[in-house]
Nucleic acid binder design. Structure first.
Lengths: 186, 186
DNA sequence: ATTATTTTTTGACCTAGATCAAAAAGCATT
DNA sequence: AATGCTTTTTGATCTAGGTCAAAAAATAAT
């Protein structure tokens, strides 16, 4: 909880009442590895803050799992499209490791914003940050070779290879597992 | 200005003072075709609402122009990464057609949010919408063949081919102009 | 209308990475 | 330590779309 409050308060002013409310509204959730947090075609009605562990967003293409992103310690995670629009999700979310999460429901999220303009401000900054990042990332990504993507991935997620399977990395890079294996063997 | 106020008020409550303030802070700007609105490596300190015309976001890769997006009537446009982070932009913005824009500076945007919580709410919703869209779009896009991308583009921008050059479309699709030409000839 | 310039199309060849199939390496479990 | 079961690697081939160069078409300028 300390990390979550820290995260919020570096982005907006947190007075004692808001602190109290965050404490109350974000529920601590200890989740075993492999647990599915959101299934395909359901509406994401939870926003997660990762205190400890690793979250895996992925979707299916031609029946195969494609990684969209990993979220680890001190990051907010959800299926953004589904959470913000409250439409059914094209992606699923699972815990890849035993994790400690702080969870808020969509309804409480909305209520928190309505009750605390300062938290509304935080929510805006979070969306702006995510958008900035995705804007930057999606454009740089599209022009990298498989090898360059692999190198960049290692910068973003330093020890990801010890934490997830090769195929999950490969699909994130947009290449086949075989190609990734060949890249690595050099 | 009517369209802009319409756009805002379908997303948040606009009282007379806010209406007045929006009127005052968004400046009408009639821009000739070809005008560069933002250059590479400068900070985007303007947010545009397109009343009339067509805006082109693009960046350079290997010295060649790559289209990142088109913005037309009734859309907000800027270089999102640069505007929100106030860091230098990897993309440029230009008007492809003679356009009528309503423009607000970054400073006024911030001030507007500080003075009107309701506008802050609007700004949050705008960022959430853009993020939702980009999240959805970037993931669907990556698995389409050149031909499928071309078809999808035509749904998004019905008469874009009459408005921009082939090369600008091709780079948006992530394919060479030659390939696009071949797709079209069938 | 003719010429110059820009944009689009066509042709010939090439390459990064895909696919399919099988071997090897890692692990658990008994 | 032997037996499965999963994950990764290696090998052989294939293909969508790239590149380079030149022709054709469209647009603009005289």
């Amino acid at each position: 909880m300390q990390n979550l409050l820290q995260y919020i308060s570096t982005r907006c002013f947190v007075n004692p009442e808001l602190r109290q409310r965050v404490h109350h509204d974000f529920e601590k959730n200890e989740v075993p590895a492999g647990k599915i947090l959101l299934e395909y075609n359901r509406v994401a009605n939870k926003l997660y803050f990762v205190e400890q562990g690793l979250i895996h967003n992925y979707y299916y293409h031609d029946g195969k799992e494609v990684t969209s992103w990993f979220y680890s310690e001190n990051q907010f995670a959800t299926a953004w499209y589904s959470f913000y629009t409250q439409k059914s999700s094209f992606e699923e979310i699972r815990c890849l490791e035993e994790s400690v999460l702080y969870v808020i429901s969509y309804d409480k999220y909305q209520k928190l914003i309505a009750d605390f303009p300062s938290y509304g401000n935080f929510a805006r900054l979070l969306a702006e940050e995510m958008l900035s990042f995705l804007d930057y990332f999606s454009k740089s990504w599209s022009f990298l070779s498989a090898k360059e993507k692999y190198n960049l991935l290692q910068e973003y997620f330093p020890n990801i290879e010890q934490r997830v399977k090769l195929g999950q990395i490969a699909s994130f890079l947009g290449i086949s597992q075989e190609t990734l294996s060949r890249i690595r063997s050099k």
